[in-house]
């Protein structure tokens, strides 16, 4: 009797211990990553990096900054996230509100999203490159945005789908019973309930988009300048980091870490902003169901 009891307590303690250890491991890892890039990049970190573009010889250790890459990354990830939003939201509302949540079509589309989600982004890049060759397009901001849109659609759509599936059916029924059409129910009622979730999903997609290097490698090209049109090639932060790390010069490698630090800070601040807005937008959400 007592032995059994002791064993149960021991198991309880062991399991708790394992869980705590894993949580600590994760937190430790995060701290380690951030401090590594902060420490290594600190010596290279300065304001002129943020306000200048790469000058000649930047990758050899001369003057310059990464403003062009920051802007490039923002344009690509921002543009792609917006486009992906305008494509994913209608699909998701269609399969959940216009059709029944468990219809064959809905399940088929969900399956497609899962498959698309699992495709590595280098494949999207290669696909985009093939399309560009076919259409006779050159590497450009536009091509980068389009390819990253493809990368982001499954992320966004799955995120929004998850949220829409949790919208209480009673809300839909309430709207319909007032004589609302399906469209009005989807776009005036359900959308309000899921707005905070959409923001979170957009943030995830944006994070993936801004950090993606493989898909833009072929499609957005590379440049030392701030793009002036959609048709010009652009640099992105991950590629700048990659090229800087690839040089044999320690001072340039440190700049890579500084760039990584900036990228991390950017993503973090976008995260915080999104949290702020999603709190505001969840004011009217119904969650007692």
């Amino acid at each position: 009797m007592n032995i059994r009891k002791d064993r149960r307590f021991f198991e309880e303690k062991l399991i708790k211990g394992i869980m705590r250890f894993c949580a600590l491991l994760l937190a430790g890892l995060l701290i380690l990553i951030v401090t590594t890039i902060a420490v290594k990049g600190f010596s290279a970190l300065n304001l002129s990096m943020l306000v200048n573009t790469a000058k000649g010889g930047f990758y050899l250790g001369k003057e310059g900054g990464i403003l062009h890459a920051i802007i490039g990354s923002f344009c690509i990830a921002g543009g792609a996230t917006c486009l992906a939003f305008f494509i994913s939201t209608p699909i998701v509302l269609y399969i959940n509100v216009y059709r029944k949540k468990r219809s064959k079509l809905a399940e088929l589309i969900r399956f497609a999203f899962n498959v698309l989600w699992g495709i590595p982004s280098i494949v999207y890049g290669a696909f985009g490159f093939t399309c560009m060759l076919f259409l006779g397009l050159k590497a450009s901001l536009l091509a980068g945005i389009l390819v990253i849109t493809l990368v982001e659609i499954p992320i966004l759509a799955r995120g929004i789908d998850e949220v829409v599936q949790h919208v209480p059916i009673e809300i839909t029924q309430a709207a319909l019973s007032l004589g609302a059409t399906t469209g009005e129910t989807a776009w005036k009622v359900v959308i309000r309930q899921i707005l905070p979730g959409i923001i979170t999903a957009m943030l995830l997609a944006f994070g993936r988009g801004i950090g993606d290097a493989a898909a833009v490698l072929f499609t957005a090209g590379f440049s030392d300048y701030i793009p002036e049109s959609l048709m010009q090639p652009v640099a992105t932060l991950p590629l700048v980091i990659f090229f800087q790390l690839g040089t044999p010069f320690p001072s340039v490698q440190n700049r890579a870490y500084a760039s990584a630090f900036i990228l991390t800070l950017l993503v973090l601040s976008i995260s915080l902003m999104a949290r702020f807005f999603s709190k505001k937008l969840s004011r009217h959400r119904i969650d007692h169901m």
Binding site: E170, Q173, A174, R192, H284, I286
Partner: peptide, 12 residues
């Protein structure tokens, strides 16, 4: 007009 088992306001 429908009154459901659990009242369900619209998210507004």
């Amino acid at each position: 007009g429908l009154l459901a088992q659990k009242p369900c306001p619209l998210p507004m």
